[in-house]
Write a protein that binds this DNA or RNA. Structure first.
Lengths: 96, 96
DNA sequence: CGGTATCCACGACGATACTG
DNA sequence: CAGTATCGTCGTGGATACCG
């Protein structure tokens, strides 16, 4: 359980993973999807997810730079957990 | 999702909830179940869970004191999430 | 027995400025 | 475009000691 919790921990991690569930995204697309997230935290979270092996980063050098982030096979394992987080959140809010 | 995540966030929260899933527990029983958890953090987590409405605290005054902690109906809503956390953890570890 | 009171360490998060 | 650098704030967690 600690492994799974570490994978989704952090205020923004689930939101990033949710975006990536819909397909590969550039840094720019991810930032646009979460406007209130600073560059620093976005870069931190992405580096963490790559280090955990949940996300893959493809860097195309040149000018301007481009990077494409996508889920790895391991990252796909998180999908049912995100769904259950959503459902549980719904249940908790309804019961209040 | 943030609501559900807040409910299970923290290094020890899921472990406490898992114990309480099996039935009401006294402070002493919970501490014995998690020997490496300090009194401060245990009391902090329990207070947080009570404040969130996930756990109920019944205090029997006298000497010595006794307190009994149990899940509320809302707390029961967390059960499927804990199961999914366990399963996802298994999948992530197998894929490494 | 069931906690509080302190104090401290560490990492997550945030704001702002800057760069290859 | 896709980040890094720097600095500051806050919450979680840990250690130890004490209390009704």
């Amino acid at each position: 359980m600690e492994v799974a919790l570490a994978a989704v921990a952090g205020r923004w991690t689930t939101l990033l993973l949710r975006d990536l569930m819909h397909g590969p995204r550039s840094y720019h697309q991810l930032r646009d999807g979460l406007p209130s997230l600073s560059d620093k935290v976005l870069a931190d979270r992405l580096r963490q997810l790559v280090a955990q092996g949940l996300v893959d980063r493809q860097q195309q050098r040149g000018f301007p730079n481009r990077s494409l982030y996508s889920l790895t096979a391991a990252g796909e394992h998180i999908r049912p957990l995100l769904i259950e987080l959503y459902r549980t959140g719904q249940r908790l809010q309804q019961s209040q």
